[in-house]
């Protein structure tokens, strides 16, 4: 039982981590939390659905299109929401991203909501749907794909930040936007890039996850809350923290559901947020001081 719970916790945790990465990316460079991040995730999933199921394209083509589409949506969010409000107080930004989330949720429901007679659509697995044995337990190949996807993105991002010019510019802007601007970095382009990149990881996560659950216009919000828990647990603003936090939230949910009561599975993320913020607001790996906003 323990092995199963840990395995499924890791698999959902990988998903939370991927959503959290995008959230933290945007938070680090802009100091704002994108409340529409869950909906960007959802929309990416539906883009892939359109290409994979409706148009019958290959899975990896659909994944690529969803990642590009997610990027563009992130850029749209930057241009319509973030840029005009760059100097606005945190509350205004929260409201604006919430407004944006309703907008895209409504659009998704308009196009895909009524398909298949429900408010959800089925997304066939990219790989063989039958479970396979690994180390004495059964897992779905799709779960391995989620894990592999998460690992892939973590590696790609580490390389991106450490080695590429864009990555370094993003790091610099996150550390100190004014200094970055003074040293010739076009900060506003970096912001656009950040929003786009955050959304494209979320899209990829959605495409990987969709075959394991069903896809509906309402999936975003719950994922967003889990990603909040992951980022808070890892220390708001810490990238490795968010990844480890994501896995931990997944595992805690799974263990609480398995050993204590299945009703606790749903609520553990909120308890994690409250407990961490009350007793250790900097999180497990908090390297940043408490920021004022």
């Amino acid at each position: 039982m323990f092995a199963y719970l840990i395995a499924s916790g890791i698999s959902t945790g990988a998903l939370y981590a991927m959503v959290a990465i995008g959230l933290v990316l945007v938070y680090r460079s802009t100091g704002h939390i994108n409340f529409s991040h869950g909906e960007l995730f959802m929309f990416g999933g539906f883009i892939a659905y359109t290409f994979f199921v409706i148009l019958g394209m290959p899975y990896f083509v659909s994944l690529a299109v969803a990642v590009i589409g997610g990027f563009l949506l992130g850029v749209l969010c930057d241009r319509t929401v973030y840029r005009p409000l760059i100097k606005a107080p945190a509350l205004t930004m929260v409201l604006a991203t919430v407004g944006f989330s309703f907008l895209i949720k409504g659009v998704a429901r308009f196009f895909w909501g009524a398909r298949e007679g429900g408010d959800y659509v089925a997304f066939p697995a990219a790989v063989d749907p039958a479970p396979i044995p690994i180390g004495g337990i059964m897992v779905f190949p799709q779960q391995l794909l989620v894990l592999g996807g998460a690992f892939f993105f973590v590696v790609v991002f580490t390389i991106f930040f450490r080695r590429t010019r864009w990555g370094k510019m993003m790091q610099a802007t996150a550390e100190n936007a004014t200094a970055a601007f003074l040293s010739g970095i076009r900060v506003e382009r970096v912001y656009t890039m950040t929003w786009g990149t955050g959304a494209c990881i979320a899209s990829a996560a959605a495409v990987l996850m969709a075959p394991l659950t069903l896809l509906s216009p309402d999936v975003g919000f719950n994922l967003l809350l889990r990603a909040f828990a992951a980022t808070v647990l890892g220390g708001l603003g810490s990238m490795p923290g968010a990844i480890i936090g994501g896995f931990l939230v997944g595992i805690i949910e799974s263990l609480a559901g398995g050993y204590l009561h299945t009703g606790l599975q749903e609520v553990s993320a909120f308890i994690i947020i409250i407990v961490v913020l009350v007793f250790r607001p900097s999180g497990l790996f908090g390297i940043h001081k408490l920021r004022e906003t």
């Binding site: 698999s11 659950t213 509906s216 799974s254 299945t262 599975q265």
Partner: peptide, 12 residues
């Protein structure tokens, strides 16, 4: 019990 919008049902 399970949430109406779960991503995992292994504990159940």
């Amino acid at each position: 019990e399970i949430a109406p919008d779960p991503s995992d049902g292994t504990p159940q």
